[in-house]
Design a protein around this nucleic acid. Structure first.
Lengths: 104, 104
DNA sequence: CTGTATCCCTAAAGATACTG
DNA sequence: CAGTATCTTTAGGGATACAG
């Protein structure tokens, strides 16, 4: 998801994409772009040069998936704060019940 | 995702939900519903009876997430066949290159 | 019926080093 | 620069047994 979102802003080369995703290891990005290319969601263009330049970009299918994913991202941004609050309440309630069951 | 989609058709009790999801283990469903409840996506209602009846249902937040997920499901249904075809082509090409590199 | 508790095993991801 | 290869660690999930 993150790779697709970063590539929606335009094509990126391997290390630029890696910086854009921020935190992904070289190995995982390598595996991820291969899978996305296999699924036809991104394209991989090699410019024969020394050192090599490989550019990744969304395909039309990738862009169409991004439209859906963007809604999911928007939903998350709209709901994350409240979800975090509910999680705290849930954890507090769970802790309280534990104390009731096994009083220290 | 599957649990949320199944619950969108209406509330279900634990084992009915398990049958609806079809394939999930008791352990994983238990973990999953607990996390969804913690996130405020589903509600859990216990009817005090013997044997106990516990009904799970989507909350309003869960329904709003389902609206987004339903689009993702629709996207998948629209695209899966072509993705499968692309995967085969990708794998065939990869196999062909391997043979070129290491001829038997 | 609705779950927990254990044990176990594997697939996924991290760290590190190396290469065309 | 754009990756592989290798090794190790960890978290996710299966199987099974038990419990209120």
């Amino acid at each position: 998801m993150t790779v697709i979102c970063r590539l929606d802003d335009g094509p990126l080369r391997f290390n630029a994409l890696r910086r854009a995703v921020n935190g992904i290891t070289q190995r995982m990005l390598s595996i991820t772009v291969r899978r996305l290319e296999r699924d036809g969601l991104i394209s991989r263009a090699v410019e024969p040069a020394v050192p090599p330049r490989v550019e990744y970009a969304l395909t039309e299918r990738g862009r169409s998936l991004h439209r859906v994913l963007a809604e999911l991202v928007a939903w998350t941004e709209e709901n994350l704060d409240e979800i975090r609050r509910d999680r705290e309440r849930y954890d507090d309630a769970a802790r309280a019940e534990e104390l009731l069951a096994f009083p220290a």
